[in-house]
Design a protein around this nucleic acid. Structure first.
Length: 564
RNA sequence: UGGGGCGUAGCCAAGCGGUAAGGCAGCGGGUUUUGAUCCCGUCAUGCGAAGGUUCGAAUCCUUCCGCCCCAGCCA
């Protein structure tokens, strides 16, 4: 019996955003009978959190409205593109949980059609071969406040243009020698309409078409027409393309395209303490500030995957931040919340001591061993249970012991008691220091009959700490990550963004000790190390028998505020 | 200083003439063998500003202010 009335769930539903409203209206009015969207990355780098927003939007819309979403590589500039990027993008989209409709598309698959459309434009006198060099073209274009001037070759005959363009295609001209331009309006207040270049010469091998072409269509000439070829109904891009929309529409109106897609723009994602420009991410990689595109500190999809972020958490994040036309900077804390939210619900629990401190139980027989059973998750029986072996010698975290402390400190203190998670309550008697005054061991006593119950004398411990036994644990390393930048907006105020790199964004802990069950950890599988945070195996640095764990994200820590 | 956009809490974001949803963060409290989770409460007499229209304005009008994008043969 379902007791969730649809009205109640409807009341809790997130309100539709402006693009969903546009689609609803188009469907209602019969402008389209079903929708087609597309995610169109250029394969010139790795995908990042900003792309995740676009992916979730485009694939999400198709799902919500029963339409389809294509994956199309917008590969019109062979100089920057490669198969390595194509492969990583395919992997990232799939990993995020989306499946594109049909085969993967490449804009380069449409080069023949695009070329014929260029000829079509020439034949109706709406495109011409321009002999201006790139530098001259810039001068002729005018400025933001001054109109441009017509190219000296703007009025060539159709025949001459056809001949010249064919020669361009045949490789008879050097790069930059000439270009094909749309004949629109050199005085337009919109600079994109001042006779934009639609074909340029690039004698570069293309990752997908090889050496077939030496002229390549520009983004503006390729994008809308490719949308039309695929039957895309709603072509969604970011705000900076807004000024290109009149041009997008001009091509659709002036060419014999099979459909009339419409372009809509939304605000790209910005996150504080993060950079999301391809140029900057590339620089972090190339200059060696990080371990590669998939460094766990990177906001790339591959970096976040290695870090231990889950597809569901990223999708949830994209859902929560909304889709609008207002420039905004989302607090990275929102992302962290989504990651914790998903991991808390799904990650099995385990104990791992990050900074070991030896504890000897003086009243526990030296040769005695016990086994305790602990739940895999405090409120999910389906996650099973694990076995913990207990003995007279243990390790706890250095942070969890103090010789003396005030009442706010709820961990182990001399003369006080603490609960060992899933095991006994113990009481500390003394600690031993080395010559440098460093505490190297704690002597403590087990309080009898405290498994699953409070001490019989009524003196209850205030806190609970995690532990591993000395005789049975797994040695491991742990890599702790902090935000990559120390400033909310790296590189703002004319500074170089590299100046605000956080020198402490990576802390490698060696000699950590985990409970034995962690020996079976697999990459991309999250655990909660109780009281520490969420962790997953790092595939790159782990070796058999010596795992390395990445801290995906720490637990929320209200003690940190009290401790200050 | 041309053109195109955008301004609702610390952050994100609903709202579309009927008297400011929700989430994150924060703060206070409760439960707890994780200082976690969970639960409860609290958080905009005001929507960039000033005028105007109206019984009534975040929503309509006017003016002003601020921020973002555009002068690649990049996307």
């Amino acid at each position: 019996m379902s007791d969730t009335p649809s009205s109640e769930s409807a009341a809790k539903q997130k309100p539709a955003h402006f693009i969903q409203n546009i689609i609803k209206r188009d469907l209602d009015e019969g402008k389209v009978t079903s929708i087609v969207t597309r995610f169109p990355p250029e394969p010139n780098g790795y995908l990042h959190i900003g792309h995740a927003k676009s992916i979730c939007l485009n694939f999400g819309l198709a799902k919500d409205f029963g339409g389809q979403c294509n994956l199309r590589f917008d590969d019109t500039n062979p100089e920057k593109e490669s198969d390595e990027y194509v492969e990583s993008i395919k992997r990232d989209v799939s990993w995020l949980g989306f499946q594109w409709q049909g085969d993967i598309r490449f804009t380069s698959d449409y080069f023949d059609t695009l070329y014929s459309w260029a000829l079509e434009l020439i034949r109706v006198g709406k495109a011409y071969v321009c002999d201006l060099t790139p530098e001259q073209a810039r001068e002729y274009r005018g400025t933001l406040t001054e109109p441009g001037r017509n190219s000296p070759t703007r009025d060539r005959s159709v025949e001459e243009n056809l001949t010249l363009f064919e020669k361009m295609r045949a490789g008879e001209f050097d790069e930059g020698r000439c270009s094909l331009r749309a004949k629109i309006d050199m005085a337009s207040p919109n600079i994109n309409m001042r006779d934009p270049v639609i074909y340029r010469i690039k004698k570069v091998r293309h990752h997908h078409t090889g050496d077939k072409w030496c002229v390549y269509p520009s983004y503006d000439f390729a994008h809308g027409q490719s949308d039309a070829i695929e039957g895309v109904t709603h072509s969604i891009c970011t705000l900076e393309f807004e000024d290109h929309r009149p041009l997008y529409e001009w091509f659709i109106a002036n060419l014999s395209v099979p459909a009339t897609p419409k372009q809509y723009e939304f605000a790209r994602l910005n996150l504080n303490y993060t950079v999301t420009s391809k140029r900057k991410l590339r620089q972090l990689v190339d200059d060696g500030h990080v371990d590669g595109w998939d460094d766990p500190r990177m906001p790339t999809i591959s970096g976040m995957r290695r870090r231990g972020f889950t597809p569901a958490s990223l999708r949830n994040f994209c859902e929560r931040i909304g889709v609008t036309r207002a420039d905004s900077v989302v607090d990275v804390g929102m992302l962290e919340y989504c990651v914790r939210d998903d991991l808390d619900k799904n990650a099995p629990r385990a104990m791992c001591v990050l900074r070991p401190l030896k504890v000897t139980l003086t009243n526990y027989p030296e040769d005695r061993r016990e086994e305790f059973v602990a739940p895999g998750h405090p409120n999910r029986d389906d996650l099973g249970e694990r076995r913990l072996s207990f003995g007279p010698s243990l390790y706890i975290d250095r942070e969890d012991f103090r010789e003396e402390a005030n009442k706010k400190y709820k961990r182990l203190v001399i003369g006080k008691r603490v609960r060992l998670r899933n095991a006994y309550v113990i009481e500390a008697d003394e600690c031993i220091k080395d010559d440098g005054g460093q505490i190297i061991e704690v002597k403590a006593r087990v309080i009898d009959n405290t498994i699953g119950q409070d001490p019989e004398d009524g003196i209850k411990p205030k806190g609970v700490i995690h532990w591993v036994s000395a005789h049975d644990h797994l040695a491991c390393d742990v890599r702790l990550y902090d935000r990559l930048f120390t400033e909310e907006s790296p590189g703002s105020g004319g500074k170089d963004f590299l100046e605000s790199i956080n020198p402490d964004s990576l802390e490698v802990l060696t000699g950590c000790m985990a409970e034995p069950s962690l020996a079976n950890a697999a990459a991309e599988f999250a655990y909660q190390f109780e009281r520490e945070g969420y962790f997953c195996l790092d595939e790159k640095y782990s070796k058999s028998g010596k795992p390395v764990f990445n801290r995906t994200i720490g637990l929320r820590d209200s003690w940190a505020k009290i401790a200050d």
